[in-house]
């Protein structure tokens, strides 16, 4: 038996969420007494490193037709490898690309799709597993009797560890079918050098309490000092102070970093839905009755314009001391 995991790469290199997915797949494979096969498409990094996270066999596809991401052709490639390896369980990261492929793989293989998974399966037969629902306001235990399944896992929910096991790297011949309905990529516009919000360990987020876009310098400075990604509340992105891609919450991106620092955000239920799975929450707000304090681990009742400069210098001296 085999568990197949799609080892997503971005501009050739692997993401942290990929290591997490491989580690997760290897743990699922242990429960199934199965082998872990990782598939890398157009990755240019050293593939053997994926062995450290638990992959035993690494299949690589190099084909000019797959140089740029296309959800249909990538789904087909994953299916081709799964068919050849006899892998009934497929693990995919819940990234934007992962979410664009997983339903296609599931539907084409007539497999059950269970997305937003946060834990290892509780039972393999019948297959029972927990996933987030109601915009992270609840957790649901799902069951499927289908032999074939596609699981997408939430970033940062599972973590990973590096081991020293080795893996064999084998190339896989794959040519997309002409009949696949496809699209042409014209351009990719990515904020290079920035830390991706979904897989960031640390996130600094700010809301309407910051009064205007001109005040985001200190938010970015705090994020830089920490090595954190930046996020914002919905009204802040609606009025255009910050890009839509930073909007977290029930109708934005759901995140669960190790640390979430919320500055000048009231903590409305819709905001909390997207961030309350964060392991540690720090709230900085002038209003001691702001609902966010109820969801916080650490709180400072104070004015962001006074607290942030102090916090930035405290973080910088802490960083300098270690």
């Amino acid at each position: 038996m085999k568990v197949l995991v799609y080892a997503e790469s971005w501009n050739g290199s692997f993401k942290k969420s990929t290591f997490e997915a491989i580690h997760y797949a290897a743990e699922v494979a242990k429960l199934m007494n199965a082998e872990t096969v990782a598939l890398s498409i157009s990755g240019t990094e050293d593939h053997a490193q994926l062995g450290q996270y638990g992959a035993q066999i690494i299949k690589t596809i190099e084909n000019a037709a797959l140089e740029t991401f296309d959800n249909q052709t990538y789904a087909e490639a994953i299916i081709a490898v799964a068919d050849e390896m006899g892998a009934d369980t497929i693990i995919i990261s819940n990234t934007n690309n992962g979410k664009a492929i997983a339903p296609l793989v599931a539907a084409k293989r007539k497999a059950a799709l269970i997305s937003n998974v946060i834990e290892l399966p509780e039972s393999i037969s019948p297959f029972t597993i927990k996933r987030k629902t109601f915009s992270s306001k609840a957790i649901a235990k799902y069951q499927t009797h289908s032999d074939k399944k596609v699981i997408t896992i939430t970033a940062n929910a599972f973590g990973y560890a590096e081991g020293d096991s080795s893996a064999s790297v084998e190339s896989f011949d794959f040519t997309p079918q002409e009949t696949t309905p496809s699209l042409t990529s014209l351009s990719v516009d990515s904020a290079t050098g920035k830390i991706g919000l979904t897989e960031a360990d640390l996130v600094v987020s700010a809301g309407r309490g910051l009064k205007g876009p001109e005040n985001w310098g200190m938010v970015e400075e705090l994020a830089d000092a920490l090595g954190a990604a930046t996020a914002c509340s919905k009204p802040v992105s609606d009025i255009g102070w910050r890009p839509h891609s930073e909007h977290v919450g029930q109708t934005g991106i759901a995140i669960n970093p190790q640390l979430y620092i919320a500055v000048g955000i009231s903590g409305a239920i819709q905001h909390l839905a997207g961030v309350n799975a964060s392991k540690n929450i720090v709230v900085i707000n002038t209003d001691p009755d702001a609902p966010f304090f109820k969801a916080a681990d650490y709180g400072i009742v104070g004015d962001a314009f006074e607290v942030l400069p102090k916090l930035i210098s405290a973080i910088k001296s802490h960083k300098a001391s270690i």
């Binding site: 497999a111 059950a112 235990k141 289908s146 400072i300 009742v301 006074e306």
Partner: peptide
């Protein structure tokens, strides 16, 4: 149908938040 829900749970409640004096941000760090 491919899946069914067996049951639901709410996420664990947070314990009370530790408040830090705005003049003592070193404590937060």
């Amino acid at each position: 149908k491919q899946t069914m829900v067996l049951n639901y749970d709410l996420p664990k409640e947070k314990e009370a938040c530790t408040l830090i004096d705005p003049d003592q941000v070193d404590q937060l760090v």
